[in-house]
């Protein structure tokens, strides 16, 4: 299924840009609660990175690097979003009440249920966009 990349420069660029974009996306995702950014934007950036890679090489290559089926990402994301909201029910609080632990994780900061929810949004957006792009490019 491997086909020759469209252009050597583009392909080489895409290969090095993808990890950078992923890193940037995680950064945007995690700082989103206090600075501009968040799950929507981070997810879109990741999707852009993989879409770029798919253009430079092939969809099959991009799928291989992603490892997960985008449709599964949608499902996991939605499940995670639901769970992050259900957590507060265990403490007798209304659905989706934000919970924040007292300790902070090094290099990431405090992770509360809204953060988990943002990660869920991140996953859904990646799944949605890549599912569309991949299946379109394949058909």
């Amino acid at each position: 299924m491997k086909r020759r990349p469209a252009s050597v420069i583009f392909a080489t660029g895409a290969r090095y840009i993808l990890p950078l974009m992923l890193l940037f996306a995680f950064f945007i995702l995690l700082r989103g609660h206090n600075e501009p950014g968040g799950g929507f934007i981070g997810g879109l950036v990741v999707a852009c990175g993989f879409a770029l890679f798919a253009l430079a090489y092939s969809v099959a290559d991009a799928r291989q690097i992603l490892r997960v089926d985008p449709i599964q990402l949608i499902g996991w994301g939605l499940l995670l979003a639901l769970l992050s909201g259900l957590l507060s029910l265990l403490l007798g609080l209304p659905f989706m009440t934000g919970l924040w632990p007292d300790f902070a994780i090094p290099a990431i900061g405090k992770v509360g249920t809204p953060t988990i929810f943002d990660v869920a949004v991140f996953l859904v957006v990646i799944g949605v966009v890549l599912n569309v792009v991949f299946s379109l490019a394949e058909s």
């Binding site: 609660h33 950014g37 968040g38 934000g98 509360g112 809204p114 949004v121």
Partner: peptide, 21 residues
């Protein structure tokens, strides 16, 4: 209340989280 400085993001993931879901 929601421990977030980016108000837009806090609205999305906390105050109006069910809408976002």
């Amino acid at each position: 209340e929601a421990r977030g400085r980016n108000v837009v993001n806090v609205i999305l993931v906390d105050f109006r989280g069910i809408d976002t879901m």
